[in-house]
């Protein structure tokens, strides 16, 4: 299959985040909470543009990677900072860094930076 030219490719960013909470949180619960909060903040129309997806989450270190469209990055980051609880656990999402490749993002999470 012939690949798309660079102009037509989707431009993605990978947000490295950390959940700061007392208790352990499960990946499913994180995905649900992110989806709910982002949808509540930017709406269905915005969600379609942003297409946020949790691509990696380490339950032990509570760090993960969220894939999001380049144009909606700021709105998604704003929505993440409004999360107060995940499955009835008080918590907050700390955004560590944003990268351009999933490889680098996963590397940073595994290294513990």
């Amino acid at each position: 299959m012939k690949p798309f030219p660079a102009v037509l490719k989707e431009k993605k960013r990978y947000v490295i985040f950390e959940i700061i909470s007392e208790k352990r949180v499960k990946e499913d619960a994180v995905k649900k909470a992110f989806f709910r909060e982002i949808k509540s903040f930017i709406g269905i129309n915005g969600m379609a543009d942003a297409a946020p997806t949790v691509v990696y989450f380490d339950e032990k270190s509570k760090k993960g990677v969220l894939k999001v469209d380049n144009r909606a990055l700021k709105q998604v980051e704003q929505a993440l900072s409004l999360i107060r609880e995940i499955s009835f656990n008080k918590c907050f999402v700390h955004i560590i860094k944003t990268t351009g490749t999933v490889k680098k993002a996963k590397e940073l999470v595994k290294r513990g930076d």
Partner: peptide, 18 residues
Amino acid sequence: AEIYEMRSPEQLILFGEM
């Protein structure tokens, strides 16, 4: 009022942009 209500400087800047 508690640590879970705290945000990093970067997130406060994002709030300002909002």
